[in-house]
């Protein structure tokens, strides 16, 4: 293989931050959650800490799933996770609000949502079971 082909390929690999496999992520809540559905704007405001209640008055506890954060925020707000981390540092250390709870995997998110009707989280569509229902679907 010539260097003319190899070099751009290596460069593209170095720069690439896209996951190899696009995943369909869904925002979920307890089946009895008072939240019906979420728009993209509402999901953005909730996951970026701008609001903690919905217009209905329902209080929301936002939960992040560690291995899915990068994909989720890229799909939701088209920002790299480094930007999101800096954003939360700015909010936290200016006394505005604290970052969301974070769980290590989708199973923990499902368990938390199943036990707390105020919690919302994001998981891959394939991780969903009867303990939660979909509020918003993020198409990759």
């Amino acid at each position: 293989m010539s260097a003319r082909i190899l070099l751009p390929a290596i460069f593209a690999l170095l720069l690439s931050t896209q996951p190899v496999r696009a995943e369909v992520l869904v925002v979920i809540a307890h089946p009895d959650s008072p939240i019906g559905t979420l728009s993209r704007e509402q999901a953005t405001h909730l996951f970026l800490g701008r609001v903690k209640l919905l217009p209905s008055g329902a209080r929301v506890k936002v939960v992040e799933v560690e291995p899915l954060r990068e994909t989720f925020y890229r799909q939701l707000v088209r920002r790299e996770i480094a930007e999101i981390n800096a954003y939360w540092a700015r909010l936290k250390f200016s006394g505005r609000t604290q970052p969301p709870h974070r769980v290590p995997d989708a199973a923990a998110a499902m368990a938390l949502v199943a036990s707390d009707p105020s919690a919302i989280a994001f998981v891959e569509g394939g991780s969903l079971d009867a303990r939660a229902r979909v509020l918003f679907r993020l198409d990759p």
Partner: peptide, 17 residues
Amino acid sequence: VTDIFIDGDSRHVGYAY
């Protein structure tokens, strides 16, 4: 802390900007 300037209330937090 006042936040007269954009992000002025986190001016000590280098990681944030």
